[in-house]
């Protein structure tokens, strides 16, 4: 029964191939991060953590526009203390975002950064950013959240303006991923 053997071998190979491709689907997740970093896609990945000091390029100044967005269901008052900065490449810049919780309940928020144009993302070093961690605020409280960054001196000449946006998401523990569906089934007071 040579045919049966050949069949079995082929099936095993093909099954392995499909399992492999299933894994590949998941492998696309980290691959995508690498891809984003290389191409600046989505402006997701910026350099984080400590950075070596660079010679400040005083001849050049780059506009950095800071933007704040509240995602759906996020009632915090949230915005940059300065919305437009002029920064020399290589210069260490410190600024802050201000957030206050106007509700009466404790809430936890996570800020998600994004950079435009995406090509600029890899030249933006964040030394310290409130987006590294989540932020908790009691109802009625306010906080100034620090942001320290530096623009790499290698930033391509064509880029004059970098937009750095933070979107604030509500990640309070009582609001979980499945809450959306539960609420739709059970209804809510308003």
């Amino acid at each position: 029964m040579d045919a049966a053997k050949a069949n079995r071998r082929l099936i095993i190979r093909l099954l392995m191939a499909s399992v492999l491709m299933f894994g590949f689907g998941f492998a696309l997740v980290p691959l995508y991060d690498v891809f984003c970093k290389v191409t600046g896609l989505n402006g997701r990945i910026t350099a984080t953590g400590p950075v070596d000091a660079m010679a400040v390029d005083t001849a050049r100044s780059v506009k950095v526009r800071l933007i704040a967005i509240n995602n759906e269901g996020m009632p915090w008052l949230f915005g940059p203390t300065e919305s437009l900065l002029r920064v020399n490449p290589g210069e260490m810049k410190q600024t802050a975002y201000r957030a206050s919780n106007p509700t009466t309940r404790r809430m936890v928020a996570q800020a998600i950064p994004s950079v435009s144009p995406g090509e600029a993302a890899q030249y933006l070093h964040k030394i310290n950013c409130f987006c590294f961690d989540s932020q908790a605020l009691e109802g009625g409280d306010a906080i100034d959240m620090p942001l320290m960054f530096m623009i790499d001196t290698d930033l391509p000449e064509s880029i004059h303006t970098i937009t750095l946006s933070y979107t604030l998401f509500d990640i309070s523990p009582d609001k979980t991923g499945t809450a959306e569906n539960d609420a739709q089934e059970g209804g809510s007071p308003i």
Partner: peptide, 13 residues
């Protein structure tokens, strides 16, 4: 065989 598992992967995610 190459892409149906990727679809399965994405819906699993």
């Amino acid at each position: 065989i190459a892409v149906m598992p990727v679809l399965a992967g994405v819906v699993t995610m």
